[in-house]
Simulated scan of single mutants.
Amino acid sequence: MKGLASLPMTAVHAGGRVPALRALPEEVPVSLVCQGSSQAVMMCSPADLEDFAVGFCLTEGIVRAADEIESLEVVPHAQGIELRMWLRADRAEALGARRRMMAGPVGCGMCGLDSLEQAMRDLPAVVSDLRFGVEEIAGAPEALRASQPMHDRARAVHAAGFLVPGQGIVLAREDVGRHNALDKLIGALARGAGDPASGAAVLTSRVSVEMVQKCAMAGLPVVVAVSAPTALAVRMAGEAGLTLACFAREGGFDLWSGPERIAGGADVA
């Protein structure tokens, strides 16, 4: 499977030691290059890289729509992979007017920002009349498990899925980095796989502020996560008009913002 490698190891148990092969996720440095200039170097799973490039450019504000990227080429090197992009003239000019250089590990979503204002950027208001049932939200992380083949074989891999009311998980992307998995999902949607406003992002990770920012930039009105949010992520989700549901498990979840998009579940005094 692309993005995985089988390596030798020794399985140690009380009864003895057994040599075996174990599938592990690949981790490769990926450079995102626009107009010949590197915008970011991220450690990434080498799969669905076109989706990653488009999603990253959208969520970082480099482009506003996928068609503003006029060409995209995946170029392997001995040291890693380049994603070479050429932008429409007006977006190239806008990019040249700002300084943005990023180099970071998969665990960091804001490495290299050169101002506090960039880290706390204003987000577009997300307006949507989308509605989900309580059961759909609570069961979303478990439903996503069926769309995680890399995780099934290797573990150590995050996923981001797209949940549509009445249809379940219709699209998913995986990566060693939680930010990368979300960017890949957003890129796939922008390239024609679906309308972000018609569903929810389902995350296998915690929800930090940059994950909220990416969803708001993409126009995803609902964010569902298996783990906890940060306090700042909750405040920012509320300000942007997102519905934020965390600790989602069969039977329930913690709803932090946007209750109008959740149908069902009576209030208990």
Rank of each mutant, 00 (worst) to 15 (best):
V212N: 02
V33G: 09
A14P: 03
G107A: 10
A172I: 08
V212F: 09
G112Q: 07
L242F: 11
F253V: 05
E210N: 12
H13D: 13
K214I: 02
G264K: 04
A263P: 01
F253A: 04
Q118C: 04
R178Y: 13
S45F: 01
A188M: 12
A193Y: 01
I62S: 01
S6L: 13
E136S: 11
L7F: 04
H158Q: 12
P196L: 08
S38L: 12
E93W: 08
G194E: 09
G194C: 07
V164Q: 08
D67M: 04
E70R: 15
L116I: 12
A159W: 00
W256E: 05
A138V: 06
G16D: 07
A231D: 15
G61H: 08
F132P: 01
G104T: 10
R153E: 10
I62R: 00
S128P: 03
A78T: 14
A266V: 06
A225L: 11
L72P: 01
E250M: 07
G264C: 07
M85W: 00
I62A: 01
L4W: 06
P165M: 08
A89L: 09
V74R: 10
E250Y: 05
D122Y: 01
R91N: 04
D254N: 14
Q213I: 06
P165V: 05
T204N: 05
R84V: 12
R249I: 10
M211L: 15
E135Q: 14
V212G: 03
A231C: 10
L130N: 05
R100P: 00
A119G: 09
P149T: 06
A154V: 02
R131M: 06
V75D: 12
A216N: 05
V12K: 11
W86I: 10
A14C: 02
R22W: 06
L171W: 04
A140C: 13
G139V: 05
A5M: 14
A65H: 13
A190S: 09
G219P: 10
A190Y: 03
S208T: 10
I262D: 04
R121F: 02
H13L: 13
I169L: 08
D48V: 03
V226D: 15
A53S: 08
